[in-house]
Nucleic acid binder design. Sequence first.
DNA 1: GCTAAATATGTAAACGGTTACACATAATAT
DNA 2: ATATTATGTGTAACCGTTTACATATTTAGC
Lengths: 328, 328
Amino acid sequence: MATIRDVAKEAGVSVATVSRVMNGSGYAHEDTKKVVMAAVEKLNYKPNEVARSLYKRKSKLIGLILPDITNPFFPEMARGVEDYLQKFGYRLIFGNSDEKRDKEIEYIDTFLQNNVVGMIASTSEETNENFDNLEIPVVLLDRTAEELPAVYSDQKTGGKLAARVLLDRGSTNIVLIRGPVEIKPVYERYIAALEELEQAEVNVQVMDSSLTLQGGQICARQLFEQYPETDGIIACNDIVAAAALQEILKRGIRIPEDIQLIGYDDIAFTALLHPPLSTIRQPAYEMGAQAAKLLIKKINQEKIEETHKKLPVSFVERQTTRRKAEKP
Amino acid sequence: MATIRDVAKEAGVSVATVSRVMNGSGYAHEDTKKVVMAAVEKLNYKPNEVARSLYKRKSKLIGLILPDITNPFFPEMARGVEDYLQKFGYRLIFGNSDEKRDKEIEYIDTFLQNNVVGMIASTSEETNENFDNLEIPVVLLDRTAEELPAVYSDQKTGGKLAARVLLDRGSTNIVLIRGPVEIKPVYERYIAALEELEQAEVNVQVMDSSLTLQGGQICARQLFEQYPETDGIIACNDIVAAAALQEILKRGIRIPEDIQLIGYDDIAFTALLHPPLSTIRQPAYEMGAQAAKLLIKKINQEKIEETHKKLPVSFVERQTTRRKAEKP
DNA sequence: GCTAAATATGTAAACGGTTACACATAATAT
DNA sequence: ATATTATGTGTAACCGTTTACATATTTAGC
């Protein structure tokens, strides 16, 4: 790898001049510029980011912590982040936290050690203190806290909406599958849905499940044994909903005639289920992009009008819920 | 952030001594060690990786390039890589290439500028020259080339196997959905399947599709218009298979009685389809982990017995193919 | 008790950039 | 013609580490 010194020698100027030409800072004669650029070209010189980062005390790196990219909801967000940042020349250091505090701390530490200019994290509420005394900007993604800027979606409306959908379409024996209560957004939508259901005069049962395929399958199997009369299911996410759907079909229950089902997230493959899954859509990609945008503003010390950006969710009507008119 | 100088001052020693204690290199008196470690503790000192990386000309960073983490096959691999590397203190700089040469080059450049110690990449065959004259180790993942170490799966057997499955279970009008031919592994399995089919006395039709949901849906719709007599489909990946499955169900065709369908990859959600999708499994997580393992060996200059690691694929028998006995 | 080897620690030069500062020259104003 | 300002370029310090080298002190060997 050619260094700035090689270029300087090749061009017959000092390193300072090369640096100035490369960065377009300070003065440099037109002719000198040409000579320098020719040398740069010839040696295929690319400035070493590490050296630059050391002096400036900031890199072009941004840390991203997500719970688990194996859950299709997060890659979507990650791409939103990446695609936006990429345009500004930022690169991502990435880590999965598995919602574990120590992994999170480990990543934060190494991010800092690498002079990242900012961080985006989907972190568990409890551990936010990890981000507290950082001198670099942090944006929370899919999570919230008072003290930190955040981009997230309207879980409350989402939960309400899911409940409303089933209610409006005539379900009266509803099972609400609650995800892990430690995960704030998941808990919020659960609470919102529960409230909405309790206000209606319907039967409500709550079941617990993890957010994973295995968890969903276990839950779904139990569900029909415990509550065979169920005619509506609100799942904590699409994966669990898919598991429920599979169980429904396996049991020969007609959907949406006998039972309605609604998921959460609108991850890509829900549209590929049969019947296609009705769900509450979170704009994952957009959330990622917005978080990136907010972070860059922070980095550039721009005025920020809203530090807490709540993106709207929407009901994606597919075929596991009935048409609104045709209540059975 | 505390620097080594702060620690040195606090401990009343020189920076060299602090460095030696931190790295366990050279001599250091037991008492001195204690004093230094106390200062480290007190100031919560973490060595700056950037400075270290500058001097050593190598970081603890590894570059990872994948085509698109939005395709669930890749996050699985990414986690394999990450989980393995994480144990050795390496961190990932990550980029999606979208199979585009210029994005790939851009990432490679910035990886290099950040002194990564190695790279893992799923790169398109044509652009391998990008990696040619690098002085750091590179491991190809899910792709192959003569010159570079690689971890991939046995596409040929996979393609053959998929064909064999449908053949053995009695399909005679088979549509083979071919993915983008530029993507080597996808092309290889296609060719292998085609060969196997052509040797048998069955009708074979080839259709093209992208690897995405949209592409799959378009292809599936056309499929039954063009070839209504189809009784077997080999899809280029699970996503396309899921699209085909949906179309099959929509048309009320019985599966696996009237038509058999087999996917490729065994991404998580295939098990959640109804009926669950039969597919050829690539051990994505394992592939990622093996690539990481190989890379670390390279980095440590260890002897490497096999530079090209081909992992086996397997047939995952679920319910879109018939039992072998029960040919209709 | 003297020499050689082992232990302990500090000084300063790297690593590859950026930039404050000094200095020289050219352009402009008076 | 002289003072002032703008332009152009180089020198060297700095960012936070590591490490070669020098030096001082122990310890061991005989």
